[in-house]
């Protein structure tokens, strides 16, 4: 359990520097791409050399670090960061037949480049790690932060996740059958009845510690599961709620990671069955698109709602939570095998 304080999100919607999520930006060519800011805090010389993932990651991190004591660690998650540079470098290897190559793409292709760039820019010598386990990369960021704050109760940590759409990862995922063949817009995503989703990307960052004062939200619990059987997932989720939802409380909102992929519907239906009629349901993948660390944007949205922002109508699937939103469950499924369970509440 820990508290979330400052937070930021660069996403395909108007989330940075101010949030205007009631206006929905639609996918173009089956891609929801981030609206990039001007990055005033990044030195121009460095900015020019940064790939998009590093740019949006560092760009989202620096503003929330400003004016705070140096964090005791930087804990980030990503599945795709660096892939664009890696493939560029691989292509050079083949095209120049292993000739004299420049190392820029190779060095930038290391997925820990975002955490390390934030470390270099802020001269931070603390704990520094990048979790990369696909659709659970951000879940391990939360788990790691939870352990860090238990180990060091006065610690302050910058945590977050970044994934970008690159030419190549889009191509590989598309070939793998994870994007829709047909064009869909807005909430049509959920009613298409076909396989696949739309591609997405975002960077979301949070300052977290063990101190309730002034917090935006409380991360009550985080858990994950690898399994292909919805029945096993259901039992696991039920137990997760029993173990962690405070006695006498109910889940006011289920933030569902539903992404319009017909193959995953069984899991999201199972989650709705567990939370039941008492719980309102909202969805966000029509805003973020699908990518492995999408739950980071989901958590950012939860922070806004717990701080009093209204949930826009385009997100609501079922009912609207009454006034006094207290507990939110995020359930997400990545590719039918990786399950994420996050319980977040008012501080």
């Amino acid at each position: 359990m820990f508290y979330i304080h400052q937070h930021s999100c660069i996403s395909p919607q108007q989330t940075f520097p101010v949030s205007r999520i009631d206006e929905l930006s639609d996918a173009v060519d089956k891609k929801l791409q981030v609206i990039e800011p001007s990055y005033e805090q990044i030195p121009p010389g460095m900015l020019r050399r940064m790939g998009k993932a590093v740019r949006i990651g560092v760009g989202a991190a620096l503003p929330i670090l400003k004016g705070l004591p140096a964090p005791d660690g930087i804990i980030l998650g990503t599945a795709n960061a660096g892939k664009e540079d890696c493939v560029k470098f691989l292509n050079q290897i083949i095209e120049y037949n292993e000739g004299m190559l420049t190392p820029l793409n190779f060095v930038q292709g290391t997925p820990n480049a975002i955490a390390s760039q934030v470390g270099i820019l802020t001269k931070n010598h603390g704990y520094n790690i990048t979790h990369m386990h696909l659709g659970l990369a951000f879940e391990h960021v939360l788990t790691d932060a939870d352990m860090q704050i238990t180990e060091n109760p006065s610690g302050l940590f910058l945590i977050g996740a970044v994934d970008d759409i690159s030419v190549y990862n889009y191509y590989f995922e598309d070939k793998g059958g994870w994007y829709k063949k047909e064009t869909v817009t807005g909430k049509q995503l959920y009613d298409s009845g076909t396989d696949g989703s739309v591609a997405g990307e975002a960077a979301a960052m949070f300052m977290v510690n063990g101190n309730r004062t002034g917090a935006a939200a409380k991360l009550i619990a985080i858990n994950s599961l690898h399994h292909t059987d919805a029945e096993v997932m259901k039992k696991y989720l039920q137990q997760f709620i029993i173990n962690h939802l405070p006695h006498g409380e109910k889940i006011d909102l289920l933030l569902s990671g539903e992404n319009g992929d017909n193959r995953l519907r069984v899991f999201y239906d199972a989650a709705e069955e567990i939370t039941g009629r008492e719980t309102a349901i909202a969805r966000f993948k029509h805003m973020s698109g699908e990518f492995p660390t999408a739950t980071a944007m989901g958590l950012w949205l939860c922070c806004r709602f717990l701080q009093g922002d209204e949930i826009p109508g385009h997100m609501i699937k079922y009912s609207k939570p009454e006034k006094g939103l207290r507990n939110i469950l995020i359930y997400n499924n990545y590719k039918g095998i990786q399950h994420s369970f996050i319980l977040v509440a008012i501080p």
């Binding site: 820990n112 979790h131 990369m132 386990h133 399994h227």
Partner: peptide
């Protein structure tokens, strides 16, 4: 790599892949 081991041995616990070069 871990997804391969996970599927081959039907691992059900916490599974994580880390990259710090």
């Amino acid at each position: 790599v871990n997804m391969y081991l996970q599927q081959r041995y039907r691992l059900n616990g916490n599974i994580n892949t880390i990259n710090t070069a």
